[in-house]
């Protein structure tokens, strides 16, 4: 049976982890490779790097980070943040990423998702959707890390992305991101039911119960979280044991 995936996400800026695990025995807590190794040992199902480097001249640092991680961690790795062109995607894949997530450019560059899915295969193209609730049962797409409104309906957008060849949707609720109040379950469920590609729930996890809700109520295929794992509150094993106990299929 296919298992639900638990995906820890690391925010990386100029090659350094911004929000990371606070382990005292870590030689270099800011080194994304060191952090990735811990998640690998804990049995994470995938890893996600979000590159939040602001300046263009430092953008290539992420390639080096991906390269070093892929040499040490033999597990699936998704990398996103600032992906704008086919060349960006190619470089990340060549560095060792298995999947590349496209956010702002999926909205702004009309054919990027289609062209990249054709070129590299749908299996490695993730569309990262940042959605904000605007009224009951209506969500809108935001870009630029959630700062810019687009007026685009989120549900219509994910359907379109699937048609264009996206292999997966990474769905983040901007209302919940950073709140620790749990996923936007209405949104997650609507998107999961709408598309026939896997959906990763993201944004708002503050407890293990939230992961359970994302899968059970939100019908997500995978759940992503950052801070609950980073600050050593819970390990990946804790999350998996909890989900297993609640009857959710996970890889233990």
């Amino acid at each position: 049976m296919l298992k639900n995936r638990i995906i820890p996400c690391l925010d990386v800026k100029n090659g350094r982890v911004v929000k990371g695990i606070n382990f005292v025995d870590l030689v270099d807590a800011g080194d994304p490779v060191e952090q990735a190794k811990i998640y690998d040992e804990q049995g994470a199902d995938e890893l996600c790097f979000l590159d939040i480097t602001a300046s263009n001249e430092n953008r290539n640092i992420i390639l080096d980070t991906v390269k070093k991680t892929a040499e040490k961690c033999f597990m699936p790795l998704t990398v996103g943040g600032g992906v704008r062109t086919l060349e960006d995607i190619r470089n990340l894949l060549l560095a060792g990423a298995d999947k590349v997530s496209i956010n702002t450019a999926a909205v702004n560059s009309k054919n990027l998702v289609k062209e990249s899915a054709e070129k590299f295969g749908s299996q490695c193209i993730v569309v990262a959707v940042d959605a904000k609730k605007v009224k009951e049962n209506k969500w809108e797409i935001f870009t630029h890390g959630g700062r810019k409104s687009t007026g685009i309906d989120a549900l219509k957008f994910v359907e379109k992305m699937e048609t264009m060849g996206a292999g997966e949707i990474l769905l983040t609720s901007m209302d919940r991101d950073g709140t620790k109040k749990g996923y936007d379950l209405d949104l997650t469920k609507k998107v999961s039911n709408l598309v026939n590609i896997p959906v990763i729930a993201s944004g708002g996890v503050g407890s293990l119960e939230h992961l359970l809700q994302g899968i059970k109520i939100g019908k997500a295929n995978a759940v992503l979280a950052a801070s609950i794992f980073h600050f050593g509150e819970f390990s990946i094993q804790d999350a998996k044991k909890y989900l297993d106990l609640k009857g959710i299929p996970v890889r233990i």
Partner: peptide
Amino acid sequence: KLPHMGWN
């Protein structure tokens, strides 16, 4: 859902 994606 397709792709068949993840651990089996």
